[in-house]
Design a protein around this nucleic acid. Structure first.
Lengths: 409, 409
DNA sequence: GGAAGTAATTTCAAATGTTAGTACAACTAC
DNA sequence: GTAGTTGTACTAACATTTGAAATTACTTCC
């Protein structure tokens, strides 16, 4: 019941700064005049704010262009090299560290294989820190130029100073990853579930562009979802929302690795599908076997069964969340979608209520698996756009470790 | 991707006015000093805002009380008789119209039975308008004193000037109820799904008090849910979110009245449970039969089965939404909950993931079925608190018909 | 080539609102 | 009564937006 917001006065300025910066960032290039129109602010205010932003080095004028019988507009854009952001994708089999400029252009990348039997927090933290160092030196970027580091982890990232990570797959139960990393770097650390970071990546740059309400599904070995509501990731009380894979789809049906039975994941997860087609296998080549199997007529029934279940699972999401768009993602989800999109849509149509189904479209994700890291990096950018520190801590500055979370305002 | 808000300047005042009013409303009684502390605003600002509010007649000083060795505080409260709100609960078998003062004290009530075979929009609109007139005259309140009328309907209320209602149970598909009512009254009309209004009632005055993230479930003949996220009702793209009853719980299981199969509603809906206990019956005495059956040992298996399914359904909600509280409501839900709360909790525990389950509590709703109308009335109050029209349209004023919706800002 | 036209920015003087800090008021305790 | 304490009102200082007017930098027409 805490709806109405802040009440200060000079936050208005900060707010307007954010509006302008946000608008400019996503529009890529705009003139002051355009900004005034788009944001609804007066030209004077835009001029002021832009003046500040230019003085702070965040925005640059990119040649004055264009005209229509009058003074040419001076185009503005966020300076891509104002700062850099690091995105980390922590997967079950690898850790990927990427460095981006503010325009989300990749500047460097470093990958580490993760021994499935060595998921200890210290190992992962070591990889991340090594990766950080590697990408920085590869790109010739100093740590002080980095606005922050975002982590996409295979579990729940709980807000707080220590950034607790709960990841069943790793046997992590409240690992203070933020605190661990702070011992090796002073860069601010953000973290979120990998599905949620992927969702945000699709929202910003992929199949979710322009949508306000969408559900990003993620099917690999497991299945998860990220819900975006009004442009904001839905998190729930402890950022644990979106556990779609353990939705019960067959009451007391197949046992699931979560310990329960009848979970969606036990029917549409990659392993389940492969098992249905008679293939038991080890982690490594799952993906290639899966892809090959798609062409195998003998495996059809297994896929058809999966498509049916997926349709039911999507229907649940559509009924519950009433999204305008549902996106299929994750490596298995992408493969399934590429092959069976029409069938999936039909299956969902059969299970969902007509009204919400008619309001939702089901589409393929456009970003690959590397979107985990990309999306993680956007956590940093988002923070930057929203509360752009007038001047970033030039020298030292405490390194706040916070989870991406609903703690806005 | 439209996160940062507006940027005007005197909205600050409006915002602060809202903060103060909102805080005061829910605290019931506070002094200016208390308000300053609670809202974080300076004492001067609070004084100013309160000055306005008193001048507008919205807030009154209720005798100066108390002291602790100093000047006694002057207690303030929202004047309950500043204005009145009407709440309407449109159910499958009746229309209930209630008049409340701003303190949500009921001032008058009028009920109409609804012939199940006559759900025509005109009939319902007629009942509502008649009820409005009746409660106003009973309470001696003039129409100009009414801030608005809120409708809780058994379907989806789509935003827009005409306030389209989609209600399968009534055979309504885009009925412009707002437009219909506007022909008979100039009072602003709000509307929302009855489950959502009940959820808001529980949030404000019932079992959800103080929670930020909760899911209100509603089990009667059907089953629905209202999700509240950060104190705000989750709506989705067309206010259609929360169709929990048609979540698939048994793939291709029992046929459901929605046309699909295996829906939760076909397992935990009142009719399904009664059928499971061998009772087919007509609408009227459903509730009393159900209640009586609870004591019947022969019916135990049917209830146990329902509890199991309910546990799975609740688990889905807990996994997907990560709420801090789940509330059982609706007449059947309340009865089930009263009798089997421990069993329901245990069932949910068995199906849900441990982490989100540990963060959620499952509780009984505290408000009865009349909460539909109460919650509908809160839609009006919410609007009033958020954008309290400095002066309410004394004489005429166009009557905006808008759905309660996310159109904030 | 110069004058007029046009559109984008900037400047400037209100208007508005918040906030400290201070003064005032109203009560208790001794 | 006087001192102490707490709540409320007032005033001056400051920040920020805004609309209008001024300025700038072009194009186009004659």
């Amino acid at each position: 019941m805490s709806r109405p917001q802040r009440g200060t006065l000079r936050d208005v300025r900060k707010g307007n700064r954010s509006v302008v910066l946000w608008t400019l960032y996503f529009a890529n290039e705009l003139s002051r005049h355009d900004l005034a129109r788009t944001t609804g602010l007066s030209a004077a205010t835009v001029s002021n704010v832009i003046g500040d932003l230019i003085a702070d080095g965040i925005v640059v004028e990119t040649g004055s262009v264009d005209s229509d019988g009058g003074r040419p507009r001076i185009m503005l854009r966020v300076d891509p090299s104002y700062g850099y952001v690091v995105g980390v994708g922590v997967g079950e089999t690898r850790v990927r560290v990427e460095l981006y400029d503010l325009a989300m252009q990749e500047r460097a990348r470093k990958e580490f294989a993760l021994d499935p039997s060595h998921h200890e927090p210290a190992v992962v933290a070591r990889h991340i820190l090594d990766g950080l160092e590697a990408v920085l030196s590869e790109a010739g970027v100093d740590e002080s130029e980095v606005l922050g580091m975002g982590l996409g982890v295979p579990g729940v990232a709980e807000q707080g100073p220590d950034l607790l990570i709960h990841a069943r797959a790793f046997g992590w139960d409240g690992v203070p990853l933020g605190a661990l990393l702070r011992e090796g770097t002073s860069i601010p650390v953000f973290a979120d579930n990998g599905v949620k970071t992927t969702g945000q990546a699709e929202l910003w740059f992929g199949a979710g562009k322009g949508a306000q309400h969408l559900v990003m599904t993620f099917i690999g070995t497991g299945a998860g979802a990220s819900v975006i509501n009004g442009g904001v990731t839905y998190r729930g009380t402890a950022n644990g929302a979106g556990e779609w894979g353990h939705t019960k789809i067959v009451l007391d049906g197949r046992p699931c690795r979560c310990g329960s039975r009848g979970c969606l994941e036990a029917y549409i997860g990659a392993e389940a599908i492969l098992a249905g087609a008679g293939r038991e296998l080890k982690d490594d080549d799952e993906e290639s076997v899966f892809a090959a199997l798609l062409a195998d007529p003998l495996a059809r029934p297994a896929f058809e069964e999966a498509v049916r279940c997926l349709g039911a699972g999507l229907a649940d999401l559509i009924n519950l969340f009433n999204p305008e768009r549902v996106i299929l993602g994750g490596w298995a989800g992408s493969l399934l979608g590429r092959e069976f999109l029409a069938e999936i849509r039909a299956a969902a149509a059969g299970y969902a209520l007509p009204l919400p189904f008619s309001q939702a479209s089901i589409e393929l994700g456009r970003l690959g698996p590397e979107a985990v890291a990309l999306g993680a990096a956007t956590l940093v950018v988002e923070d930057f756009l929203l509360r752009s520190h007038a001047v970033r801590p030039a020298g030292r500055g405490e390194a706040p470790a916070r989870a991406a979370g609903p703690a806005r305002g």
